[in-house]
Amino acid sequence: MVDGVILTIIKSLVLASVLMGFFAYMTWVERKLIGRFQARYGPNRVGPYGLMQPIADLGKMLQKENMIPEMAHRKLYIAAPFIAMTCAIGAFGLMPFGDVATIPGTDWTIHLYIADTSVSLLVVAAIGSLGFYGLMIGGWASSSKYALLGGMRAIAQLVSYEVAFTLAVIGVIIQAGSLSFISIANAQEHLWYIIPQFLGFLVFFVAAVAESNRPPFDLTEADGEVVAGYHTEYGGMRYAMFAAAEFINAITLSALGAVLFLGGPSGPFLPGPIWMLLKIGAFLFVLIWIRATLPRVRFDQLMKIGWKVLLPVATLNLLLTAVAVVYL
């Protein structure tokens, strides 16, 4: 709490609403872009250029029936989407959008981040890992074998890639010597870590795609296959919350990538938040590009990539970084 309780609460609310709006319009951007990647138009019916599409989607989702399977564990079934959503938004809360800003016309200064502790990165990882429970609980509480197997498959994937992900991030931590986002961003003033940590960046990126369940690693959802994953039994707004949590996770991981490897909110000419948004946008663009290009991997290929490729490469990167930091 750098700015006092009330200001922090206001900032949190602003960030949460901006995040939701950003998410809503990123779904539009994604559909539009994927359309263009495939020489289609994408949504263009609701409003000019289909701009009202996210709102129409929301309206549709709200109208749907809220069904609960008879054998389901009711409380957990209802709670699961909320857990997923809360963790997704919570993890984004620690992202820095700049250091200190002065409000124009006054001499008030505010910090462009909600909180920064000496363990920020760990906190984000912790909240992110709590998000797994949304999937697992959702799969289990539905009391359906498809949902349960989908949940277990999702967890197996996430846990496998979490290892490589963390190892890739540790390289940055060693180089920056800190777990605080502000210090990590400040340490990249002269050179973005994407250059010295290129190997780590590759591992981070692949693992992030898998962590956020994006294609080609979207086995948990696998919308082309017959049965969906852990959310087989969910419909309407509850399903929408799972989908939103997944997309917000992708945004959070993009923001994390921007902070860890692209210098975070720093950049010439433009203010910090704009740079941050641009960098997040660049990550998301590549994610969408990948989705439009690559076919989905098989489950055994997924595990093979995670354990036999990413993990050794991440370890090698860590070793090289450690050697470089000590002897250079």
Binding site: A126, S129, V159
Partner: peptide
């Protein structure tokens, strides 16, 4: 929360 309990839930399921 991130590792041990996930493993627990996995085995319980």
């Amino acid at each position: 929360a991130g590792a041990v309990m996930v493993m627990f839930l996995f085995v319980i399921a």
